[in-house]
Design a protein around this nucleic acid. Structure first.
Length: 182
DNA sequence: GTAAGACATATTG
DNA sequence: CAATATGTCTTAC
């Protein structure tokens, strides 16, 4: 009586093909835009462990629309909606929830996140959690950078470019910047 | 101002 | 026990 547990959808954004996975509890995983659609599917299968996975074309239109708007440069808020985070430890949940509250166009350091999550010295463990973040963008781990102002990591070497691009996108879209950049 | 190294540090598998 | 998407500090360009 196992029904389908995972549903996924792949769609085209201004930055490339992106994908998402949903289970009963809520949004479970998200794949950031890539050039090739088949690579997105591959990542989705990884994240779903290939189990009971089914393509679904109608259910997530609202969320997909928001994601498309985001990559088109619109200021979008993802801080509502049900997430599926049961597999994670308490520490990881706290960190992920903390990061989720970072507003559009702003950044926090790993250290600040650690402190806000109630573990002031666990900044390095915060990095570990970011690496395993199943929901980039929704949980805006791209807004978490190093204390010295440099970017830190983002899913491999290629990923850094994307992180920078996303921060850039948000800084251009956010109109209320009193400071000009150097 | 940048680069490299040492050491501290928390959490996970 | 080892690994890590960090933080500070020190030293040497």
């Amino acid at each position: 009586m196992q029904e389908i547990f995972f549903k996924y959808n792949i769609f085209l954004t201004a930055w490339g093909w992106a994908g998402l996975v949903v289970d009963r509890k809520g949004l479970r995983a998200l794949v950031l835009p890539e050039e090739r659609k088949e690579d997105v599917l591959l990542k989705i299968k990884e994240k779903s462990r290939d189990n009971n996975i089914k393509e679904e074309n109608r259910e997530f239109e609202n969320l997909i629309k928001k994601i498309k708007e985001y990559f088109a440069g619109k200021k979008v808020d993802f801080s509502d909606g049900q997430l599926s985070l049961d597999n994670y430890t308490n520490f990881q949940k706290k960190v992920l929830q903390t990061v989720r509250k970072i507003p559009y166009g702003e950044t926090r350091s790993y250290k600040e996140v650690a402190k806000a999550a109630g573990h002031p010295r666990a900044y390095r463990a915060v990095g570990n959690t970011m690496k395993n973040n199943p929901l980039p963008l929704i949980i805006p781990c791209h807004r978490v950078i190093k204390s010295d102002g440099t970017l830190g990591g983002f899913s491999g070497k290629e990923g850094i470019v994307l992180k920078k691009r996303m921060i850039n996108l948000e800084s251009e879209a956010a109109p209320l910047r009193s400071l000009s950049l150097t």
